[in-house]
């Protein structure tokens, strides 16, 4: 049979395709509906937090930090309760990471504060002596793309029925009306920060990346 396949490339290819595709069908498909169900009462991230998530993705924090607490006592002692599938239901993409050059961040919001992150992102090795994490000073001057974050929220609301409030409307006018809410949230974060340039930017209606990413990190609980 195999020898016959080797002389008939079309059927050979079909055979290979069948053999390699059914593992995916059996392993992934049956659980699809189950694994995407959120925890009861869980809220999706705010637009500012989404913008922070996008900064997290842009600067690729997940190359060194995980967001997955495994069910071992040594991990729950260090990072808090083990992670549950439902907690990730609104995460697109998932950000579990695959390497812990730095610690896990899945519940960082429980035990770190806005000003800690501000000082730490500006100069990690001053706050944690011996740290090999680079400083992310550019996040204090780069502006977060809150408009794209808004577009993302609208998209997931419309396409995947993520439970956002009805005032998210996918038009320019909708965004203009919504923007003050994002700025108010940013101001609440900036109030707990000390960097003057950041505070000034927020007062002028701009959101530096650092404000957005702190909002996101604080939401990881």
């Amino acid at each position: 049979m195999f020898h016959w396949l080797e002389k008939n490339p079309f059927f050979f290819s079909v055979a290979v395709f069948v053999v390699i595709s059914f593992a995916g069908l059996i392993e992934i498909v049956p659980n699809f509906a189950e694994a995407s169900r959120p925890l009861v009462g869980m809220k999706p991230r705010t637009v500012l937090q989404l913008a922070g998530k996008n900064v997290y993705v842009k600067d690729n924090c997940m190359s060194c930090h995980s967001q997955l607490i495994r069910p071992f006592k040594s991990e729950t002692d260090r990072y808090g309760d083990y992670s549950l599938s439902g907690e990730y239901a609104y995460d697109r993409p998932f950000l579990w990471g695959s390497k812990r050059t730095g610690p896990d961040l899945h519940r960082i919001g429980n035990y770190r504060t806005t000003d800690w992150h501000e000082n730490h992102m500006f100069n990690p090795s001053e706050i944690v002596p011996g740290s090999i994490m680079p400083a992310y000073k550019h996040q204090f001057t780069n502006l977060a793309d809150i408009e794209t974050a808004y577009a993302e929220a609208v998209t997931v609301k419309n396409v995947f029925n993520t439970p956002y409030a009805d005032d998210l409307i996918g038009t320019r006018a909708g965004w203009d009306a919504y923007k003050p809410k994002v700025l108010a949230e940013a101001k609440a974060i900036a109030d707990n920060m000390k960097n003057k340039d950041v505070k000034d930017a927020v007062a002028n209606g701009e959101v530096p990346e650092i404000v957005a990413i702190i909002a996101y990190l604080n939401s990881l609980k």
């Binding site: 392993e27 699809f32 995407s36 990730y88 697109r92 998932f94 579990w96």
Partner: peptide, 8 residues
């Protein structure tokens, strides 16, 4: 895909 499904 989202969350656990995205991971899978």
């Amino acid at each position: 895909y989202s969350g656990t499904n995205d991971a899978l």
